[in-house]
Amino acid sequence: MERIKEAVDYGVIGVLLLMSIIALTVAIERWMFFRSINLSLYKNKKVLEVELTKHIHLIATIGSNAPYIGLLGTVLGIMLTFYDIGTEGYADPQKIMTGLALALKATAAGLLVAIPSVILYNLLLRKVKVLLSLWEAEYGETKDK
């Protein structure tokens, strides 16, 4: 039982950590790309859009799913705590409370991953829109003609 608990705990936190690292990596990579991009190289707006929004969906996915994974960890933690109490037959308040508190930490971690991811996603989307508009303003009409 102890091992399952640990596996759940470290598993959920590990997954969240991995998601967070991926999200931040993508965000930084995109940021660097946006800064170094040369808009004059692109002939087509659609191609430019595809190029700009590459990998951005990952951040959106992570931002929307991290809370769920955190909740999953909490639910599993509470489940295991209750299972422990059930098998022991008596309720030790100290044990219950520490079990529940540790279970809730998974939700906290999930939110901690989700919030920055959503913020980064919005920033990047805005940046994409700005770049697209700039391209359109500068080259759109001439290229179309």
Partner: peptide, 19 residues
């Protein structure tokens, strides 16, 4: 190349925050 650089950045930031 760019992604590797970004990954390293990300890792260091995570390390700092977790610490």
């Amino acid at each position: 190349m760019r992604i590797a650089k970004a990954f390293v950045f990300s890792l260091t930031i995570h390390g700092g925050v977790i610490f």
